[in-house]
Design a protein around this nucleic acid. Sequence first.
DNA 1: TAGTGGTCTAGACCACAGC
DNA 2: CTGTGGTCTAGACCACTAA
Lengths: 262, 262
Amino acid sequence: MAALPSGVLGALDPTSDRAVFRQIADQLREAIDKGRFKEGAKLPSEAELTEHFGVSRMTVRNSLSILQSEGLVSSEHGRGVFVRPRPPVRRLASDRFARRHRDQGKSAFTVEAEAAGSRPEVDSLEVREERSTPEISARLGSARKVLARRRRYLMDGKPVEFATSYLPLDIARNTPIAEPNPGPGGIYARLEELGHRLEHFDEEVRARMPAPDEVKTLRLASGVPVIHLVRTAYDTEGRAVEVCDTVMAADAYVLAYQLPAT
Amino acid sequence: MAALPSGVLGALDPTSDRAVFRQIADQLREAIDKGRFKEGAKLPSEAELTEHFGVSRMTVRNSLSILQSEGLVSSEHGRGVFVRPRPPVRRLASDRFARRHRDQGKSAFTVEAEAAGSRPEVDSLEVREERSTPEISARLGSARKVLARRRRYLMDGKPVEFATSYLPLDIARNTPIAEPNPGPGGIYARLEELGHRLEHFDEEVRARMPAPDEVKTLRLASGVPVIHLVRTAYDTEGRAVEVCDTVMAADAYVLAYQLPAT
DNA sequence: TAGTGGTCTAGACCACAGC
DNA sequence: CTGTGGTCTAGACCACTAA
């Protein structure tokens, strides 16, 4: 027989208009918010909740699916439902592409991750020439074909970000930029060596729920949105020399920017 | 009797490992992506899908709930399930707080919305003195009490953003900033008149799923995340003079920033 | 009034985790 | 092996929308 959950859950209000499964979700949410279930803790099992509230299993599962879509809990087959721990957050500062951060042997991602005490990793490396899409063309100019550099970033084994850089072929072809490892300082350092001194970057930030392939690539728990960031790099002549399309697990990031008041 | 859905949906693959409700969701998602169901179009009813795929109603509902949590569709009681139309997007430019945008009779929000052909509205106005929270104190300095200005922004009747500004009492008390309507140019114009010439703003951007009260305030469809933006304004003496905490419907915004390359 | 989605029941069998 | 969540059925009654 299933044991009754501790004492943290009350009774339903049968006079309430609020649906039973919502009332159960409300109680569990409140218990989580107030710390009666801590991060990583296991919620009562479906059987226990079923018995405690005197409802059918589907009603309980319905409640849990609400909390899951809110990103509060995640279920593990055969183990239970757990309060979702918040992963360490990567803070992206507005000066992260400043030249002074580039003159090193390692990539910005590696340096920063190690400073934070995490184990950085880059995989799914792919470099190839592709037909440009309308979106990329609109930003890069009229290049029909582009060099695409795809890679995935992980922290301590957890995927956090998936990025694709697009560069005009007339700039990147037959240069270190077309190599899997472009060398110290990354492609921005190489662009400057090729005479494209960088002047500024434009970034566009959106948030949305992930598509199924993004859930897979980033191993996202349900209830975790993605931040979609599109960055365009401009050289001192005003030419767009790179577009970087990035999809990030939203629970792993905070973006910091500085705006002028003038 | 329910009519069969057009011809856009195929059959299930009984040999597949993939759960039936996922297969159904996949088919519907593909049909939406390929435009076989357009924006705002009604999907086949649950009864039609039940009959077409030969499964129980709960299985069909399970499929639809996946699409709903992905933000692809939204259901309307008594009417049907519809492909969710994308609302017009507000683009927040990085120079939106530049001084030159302030010297007008209307607020930045109003000016910008009218330029975009929308009907702007501000409600839920509340101005009061409050105890500061640790988060606010960390940004504003050690002020124990602050002036809080709360308001909700709507475009064409749809809530898009909910914001609270916090200001140190020693700056804001007994000034136009403590009035419901602070006058032309908003509180930033008033701060400068009071001798706090603004130097720059820091913004922190996060994305997450909304809490239940945010769903209510912003009338969010399920599957729509929020962008959580915290802005701190600094004057030329380096003092933090305002913290603005904003929660935005993520489907209504794109944030644009400019980063220096130096 | 007919058709739609919203809620709920009481079962069933399965796959996975962990002892 | 037991307990867990994952999937699925075949009903039921309700509330809302629109003709």
